[in-house]
Write a protein that binds this DNA or RNA. Structure first.
Lengths: 207, 207
DNA sequence: TTGACATATGACACCTTGTCACATATAATG
DNA sequence: CATTATATGTGACAAGGTGTCATATGTCAA
């Protein structure tokens, strides 16, 4: 998290730094991105940067977290719209996210974000906030999920299924950024995978 | 890939460098790992390292790829044993991989490998080898998969389903490395997810 | 006016990486 | 055996990155 000092800065100055960072993270993957480059671009002195953020990681996750929060709102919105069918929700969000992230002004940044998203990212974003906050988020989702649609109405199992569908969506989005030949068929593959989730892979339904 | 020069080295010397690298990658994530540290530990001069590998990434993926090849052999072995039921195969491999990777002498390395595994990793490992090689690998799997078990017997759909189950397995393994509290329930979650894949999430089977 | 505090700044020490000119083996050939 | 040709080994070096800290400058309340 950025320091109070950063958050007290005029919004314009904040945006100036964040935009320079986004430009750098669009040009280079997280590892290759350079604080030097960011501060040169933003025209702020070295010391100021370290006044605002602990390090490159701190800055990166701050940016990422803002997108994550936006996504969370979109999820809730569509859950309401789709009457609690979260598979439908991710089907819609797939297109929505693809559209947003492949827009020419965003595509470089998101390509890097998605291709360099690892589980350590997730770990940092998931495990840093206090556990109550996560639980609260989950509860906000659970009251929107219509339980009679699914085989299980157990909260923990539903959250898990939700996570599974989200993971499949994420993976399909990532593959879109991998290379263009693959990307063409990716939407079909995504739908196919959702079908497996919906109806199962085995021939005989044994339950 | 390492240079011919490296592969011509006496196996002992190769192992010496690779072990030093593994020690460093066990201590630090890929980003934090230092070539300096590796060559100091392996007691080889700087110039030699760059004679053998292009850079840190080259070395890292060489190590990873060896594990990947071993895994591929295990997959084929179990596919034969389990008469082509690849869900069962990944159920077995889950335990096998967990056992191997959490052994005290391996755990630090694999924790870093799994937590820092991103899609760019996959991209590099998947897209670097010529496309025929991937196709050949897929065909080796397809002849072992018993098609009458599944709803679809279409090759491309089966490979996709295979990938889906592999992805779920990988994710579950990764979560084991995240933190101990989570890890306790992770095996249950994994089984639960496989059940969704087997029998579907929706109440009514509509196909 | 003065002190207390927050904020700004850039030179500095330290560390990394990849390269390259040069040294030294090893093999190949007349 | 002498002489090339070729492969391999080596470490000093330039270029660039990071985080810190002593110092400077604002800001506000008493």
């Amino acid at each position: 998290m950025p320091s109070k000092t950063f958050l007290n800065l005029p919004l314009e100055k904040q945006a100036n730094l964040l935009n320079a960072a986004k430009r750098e993270f669009a040009k280079n993957s997280f590892n290759m991105a350079s604080i030097n480059q960011i501060i040169r671009d933003a025209e702020i002195p070295r010391g100021s940067f370290y006044m605002y953020f602990v390090d490159k990681e701190d800055l990166y996750y701050y940016i990422l977290n803002k997108y994550r929060m936006t996504l969370f709102e979109r999820v809730k919105y569509h859950l309401k719209e789709q009457k609690g069918d979260f598979i439908k929700v991710w089907e819609i969000l797939y297109d929505e996210i693809i559209n947003y992230c492949t827009a020419s002004e965003n595509v470089d940044l998101f390509k890097n974000i998605f291709l360099n998203m690892h589980y350590a990212t997730e770990k940092k974003m998931l495990l840093k906030p206090p556990i109550e906050e996560i639980t609260r988020g989950q509860n906000e989702l659970l009251i929107l999920i219509s339980k009679d649609l699914y085989q299980s109405s157990n909260d923990s199992e539903l959250m898990d299924a939700f996570g599974l569908v989200m993971m499949i969506t994420t993976t399909s989005i990532v593959y879109t950024f991998m290379n263009k030949e693959i990307a063409i068929g990716e939407r079909t593959t995504f739908k196919r995978r959702l079908n497996i989730i919906k109806y199962g892979l085995y021939k005989e339904s044994e339950n």
